[in-house]
Simulated scan of single mutants.
Amino acid sequence: MKKIKIKVPATVANLVCGFDILGMAVHEPYDEMEISISENPEIIIRHTDHYGLPEEASKNVAGVVLLKIQEELDLKHGFEVIIHKNIKPGSGLGSSAASAAGAAFGANILLGDRLSKEEIVHFAMFGEELASGVRHADNIAPCIYGGIALVKSSDPIDIIPLQSPDLFVAAVHPQVEVKTSDARQILKKSILLKDAVKQWGNIAGLVAGIEKNDHALIGRSLNDVIIEPVRSILIPKFDEIKTKSLQLGALGGGISGSGPSVFMLAEQEETAQHIAKMMKEVYDKIEIDSFVYVSKINLIGIEIINETEGNKPLN
């Protein structure tokens, strides 16, 4: 195979209390990427979107991933990548992770599927390092594995796929930018032990609730006493949206990644649709454009697009 086209989903990282260790794939929005092997060793990146991202390989998230693959696997050929972004950079919906994971996944398929999922994550994290300064995998892991993933460790890589509960996700992306690197800078460098204990309890409860498909336990565990109180000040109307979502029947939710997107989990699609409508109305009132999405949890992750045979999921 010399060329591949893939569909790469958005992801929700942290899942409120699981900073840098929990992530979830969704169906909307998603990027499309075409990756091909070229005879010369150059890495060529082209964007068809209007976001103005750098196309020089060493400055591009997908480019640095492919450069690292080329280096570590001692490849003599190069790659050409065409990226169409629907996941806006700085959205908090895993835009950089989609490019990084898509590049690593697509290159692996073109190379004969020689890498393990852990190795694909390893290469994709170099893209996240370029984007945020940190080699984290909470967006990359669910993008590659599908569903909900627990990143037990990034070094060494230890990814635990979790059972995905039968829930709907409502998300809003207000058109304001919050850079991941900036959102990390404002975090506290140390925390109180009592707050850490509360957070550990919430994380353990959330993982147990996900594994047991216990919606009530999931709802009780979607609380963050460390990150959200600091980052929420960067997101207009965050408190109002969270309060109204709970009133409409959301189990809970919070900041998606580093923001500004906000997500909520609901048991019924109708509830999720009502929440999404409310989110849009809140931002319309203060004249901030926004996009809303309602989706089930994406159990597949990255898909190979085959126009004659349909979509082929990652095995």
Rank of each mutant, 00 (worst) to 15 (best):
G102P: 09
G90C: 10
S95P: 12
G94L: 11
I45W: 03
A103P: 09
A57M: 05
G52N: 10
V81F: 03
E39L: 12
L110S: 08
E80V: 02
M24A: 09
L111T: 06
N86Y: 05
N86W: 04
S36F: 05
G78L: 01
V65F: 00
A101R: 05
D20K: 13
D74R: 12
G23F: 08
L75W: 03
E71I: 00
N108G: 03
I43C: 02
G78F: 02
G106Q: 06
S95F: 07
V26D: 07
H27L: 12
V64E: 03
N86V: 01
E34Y: 03
M33H: 12
L67T: 01
L22W: 02
L93P: 12
Y51N: 13
Y30N: 13
E72P: 00
D113I: 01
V26Y: 01
I87Q: 12
G94N: 12
K59F: 04
T48W: 07
A100H: 04
K59M: 11
L93S: 09
G52P: 11
N86S: 12
N108L: 08
E32G: 00
I44K: 14
F19N: 08
A98H: 07
I35W: 06
S38G: 07
I69F: 02
H77E: 13
M33E: 14
Q70E: 12
A62E: 10
L93I: 08
K85T: 14
S36E: 15
H50R: 10
F79K: 02
E42N: 13
G23P: 14
G78S: 06
F105A: 05
E55N: 07
F19L: 10
F79G: 01
H50T: 12
S96C: 13
E34W: 11
S58A: 10
E55M: 08
S96Q: 11
L111S: 11
V64W: 00
I43Y: 01
F19I: 06
Y30C: 14
I83Q: 11
A98N: 10
D49N: 14
F19K: 06
I87S: 08
A107C: 03
G23H: 11
D113R: 15
L75H: 07
V26R: 05
N86M: 09
V61R: 06
D74I: 02
A100G: 12
I44A: 02
I109D: 01
A98G: 07
H47E: 08
A107T: 04
L67D: 07
N108I: 02
P54V: 06
N40D: 15
E34K: 13
V61A: 09
S96M: 09
N60T: 05
L66P: 04
P29R: 14
K88Y: 01
V65H: 04
L22Q: 06
A101V: 05
S58W: 05
A100M: 05
H47S: 15
L67W: 04
I69H: 00
N40P: 00
E55T: 15
E72M: 00
E32N: 09
I83L: 15
F79T: 07
E39A: 06
L67M: 14
Y30D: 09
P29H: 13
P29V: 14
H77R: 13
A57C: 05
E55G: 10
N60I: 08
L22C: 03
P89S: 01
L53N: 15
S91F: 05
A103E: 13
H84T: 12
E42L: 04
